[in-house]
Simulated scan of single mutants.
Amino acid sequence: MRSWTIARSMLAAVYTLAGIMHLTRPAGFVAITPHWVPSPEMMVMFTGFAELAGAMGLMFPPTRRAAGMGLAIYALCVWPANFNHALNDIPINGMHLGWGYHGPRLALQPLIIWWGLWAGGITDWPIRRRRAARQRHER
C-alpha cells in the first residue's frame, strides 16, 4: 500500500470518527461554537454530516477531489471554534484542557487543511507523487 493511500485512508478514518462524535455527542462541539454562529446545534449536526460525506468521498476516485477540497474548506471554517475554545477556556464535560492541548491543536490546523488537499489529489506539495501514480488514482 502506498503512503498516499494510507494517508488518505487515515484522514477518512479521522473524519469518520469526528463525524460520528458530532452526531452522537454534540454538546462539547455546541459549547465551543462561537456566539456569532447561528443555530449552533444545527450547525454541529451539519458539520457531522459534512465530515462523514467528506470521508466517504475521499474513498472514491470520482469524488476524491471534491471531498478533499470540501474537507480543507471545512477545516478552515471550523478553526474559529478551536480559537473560541482556547481563548475562552471553555470546559468540555467540566474539564479545562489548557494550552498544552490548545496550542498544538491550533498550530496543526493548517496541516489538517493541507492534508485534505493532498489526500484529494489537489496538491502534491511538498510530497510529490509520480505523474503516473496521480493519473491512476484520479480514474
Rank of each mutant, 00 (worst) to 15 (best):
M1S: 13
R2F: 12
R2V: 15
S3K: 06
W4K: 04
W4I: 12
A7F: 00
M10R: 12
L11F: 06
A12H: 07
A13L: 11
A13Q: 03
A13E: 07
V14K: 11
T16Y: 06
T16G: 12
G19C: 06
I20D: 09
H22D: 11
L23D: 14
T24V: 11
T24L: 01
G28S: 04
F29N: 10
V30H: 01
V30C: 03
A31M: 00
T33Y: 02
H35T: 13
V37Q: 05
V37R: 00
V37A: 03
V37W: 06
P38Y: 00
E41Q: 08
M42F: 15
V44I: 12
V44K: 04
V44W: 02
M45W: 11
M45S: 13
F46P: 09
A50D: 08
E51F: 03
E51M: 06
L52Q: 07
L52E: 09
G54S: 00
M56L: 13
G57H: 03
L58H: 02
L58G: 01
M59K: 00
M59G: 09
F60Y: 11
P62I: 02
P62A: 03
P62E: 04
R64L: 04
R64V: 13
R65E: 12
A67G: 05
A67N: 01
M69A: 15
A72C: 01
Y74D: 09
Y74P: 04
A75W: 00
A75Q: 05
L76R: 00
L76T: 12
L76D: 02
W79E: 15
W79Q: 15
W79D: 14
W79M: 15
W79Y: 15
P80G: 02
F83L: 05
H85T: 09
L87N: 13
P91H: 03
P91L: 07
P91K: 04
N93D: 15
H96Y: 11
L97T: 09
Y101D: 09
H102L: 03
H102N: 09
G103W: 03
P104Q: 05
R105N: 07
R105W: 05
R105Q: 03
A107C: 10
L108I: 03
L108P: 07
Q109F: 08
P110K: 02
L111N: 02
I112F: 10
W114S: 08
W115D: 12
G116D: 01
G116P: 06
W118M: 08
W118H: 07
W118G: 13
W118V: 05
G121N: 05
D124N: 10
W125D: 13
P126Y: 01
P126R: 02
I127G: 14
R130L: 08
R131S: 15
A132F: 02
R134P: 10
R134M: 10
Q135L: 10
Q135A: 12
R136Y: 10
H137F: 11
